[in-house]
């Protein structure tokens, strides 16, 4: 009886304020789409990091002939210095460094020649123009600073370079995009809360007579307020559902079917990621409705 009665009440309430209900659905839809887009961008960034950081290395370039660096005052890095560095990688940085690969200047020249068989921009380089280097694979790419501190300044080391830097600007751009998305989402979420508040207030006012009688005959607070709470929640969750659907379609057609087909060397977010953020979006929608309801109902349907 109770359950059915409440359902009837909800149905009536939603139909009575149909235009308001639709606007709540749409505003939550748009705001949660922004929230979802921000979350997906973050997921994309994580994926890229996972994917690329596995491949990137720290390069320790050794002194070539005629370097101006202070540590290279003794000329080209000597075999003793190279041995000393290897010991450092093994002992001091044993925990951080997973793998060490030494590239002599001959190796470097070989791979250079392979890349530019006709010389680089018309110059004729020799083996001595190349420099030897260590390629370090770190156990955790985030520990670059530790390695840098230990290695930089040692005799025979010209410069230490983190390949991750190359990606920094890309990640910066992606991070800014997701921040912007979060900002827009915040504004839209505020609008959604205000709109739900207004909707519930209207609904409560239009049912003042009913709620007045309910109070008098001793209906419990929960019973009186539940239809209003659920009305707001249903509209908000509908909006969240639309947002999830919209994001899923976007990811499917824009990313999976198009971007992933044309640029294949990058890992992309997919439908599974959308489904992973779906509960978050639904939760936010529910929370929105709850906040709005608590604010409104205590003022309009109090015992």
């Amino acid at each position: 009886m109770r359950f059915q009665f409440i359902l009837t009440e909800i149905g009536q309430g939603l139909r009575r304020n149909l235009s308001m209900t639709i606007s709540v659905v749409l505003v939550t839809f748009v705001s949660l789409t922004f929230v979802g887009a921000g979350l997906l961008l973050q997921a994309q960034i994580d994926k890229l990091k996972d994917d690329w950081y596995d491949k990137v290395e720290v390069s320790v370039f050794l002194c070539p002939v005629g370097s101006a660096e202070a540590t290279c005052a003794g000329g080209e890095a000597s075999p003793e210095q190279i041995d000393a560095l290897e010991t450092v990688f093994d002992d001091e940085l044993g925990d951080q460094v997973e793998r060490v690969y030494f590239e002599s200047k001959e190796d470097a020249f070989a791979s250079f020649s392979e890349q530019y068989p006709d010389g680089y921009l018309g110059t004729q380089l020799t083996v001595d123009d190349m420099q030897a280097s260590f390629r370090l694979k770190l156990t955790d790419p985030q520990n670059y600073e530790v390695v840098n501190d230990v290695v930089t300044g040692r005799p025979g080391v010209e410069v230490v370079e983190d390949q991750r830097r190359i990606f920094d600007s890309l990640f910066l751009a992606l991070n800014r995009a997701s921040l912007m998305s979060a900002g827009l989402a915040a504004v839209m979420l505020l609008a959604a809360v205000l709109l739900i508040t207004t909707t519930i207030r209207l609904s409560a006012l239009s049912r003042r007579r009913e709620t007045g009688i309910m109070r008098l005959v001793g209906a419990s607070n929960l019973f009186i307020q539940l239809p209003f709470l659920l009305e707001g929640a249903i509209a908000a969750v509908l909006g969240a559902g639309l947002a999830v659907g919209g994001l899923w379609l976007t990811v499917k057609y824009l990313v999976t079917d198009w971007l992933a087909e044309s640029v294949t060397w990058v890992a992309y977010v997919d439908g599974a990621d959308v489904l992973r953020i779906a509960p978050v979006l639904l939760g936010i929608a529910f929370l929105l409705a709850a906040i709005a309801s608590v604010v409104t109902l205590n003022r309009h349907t109090r015992v």
């Binding site: 009886m1 009665f5 309910m214 005959v217």
Partner: peptide, 8 residues
Amino acid sequence: FALQVIGK
């Protein structure tokens, strides 16, 4: 209505 809303 008076009975419905008190869950009879």
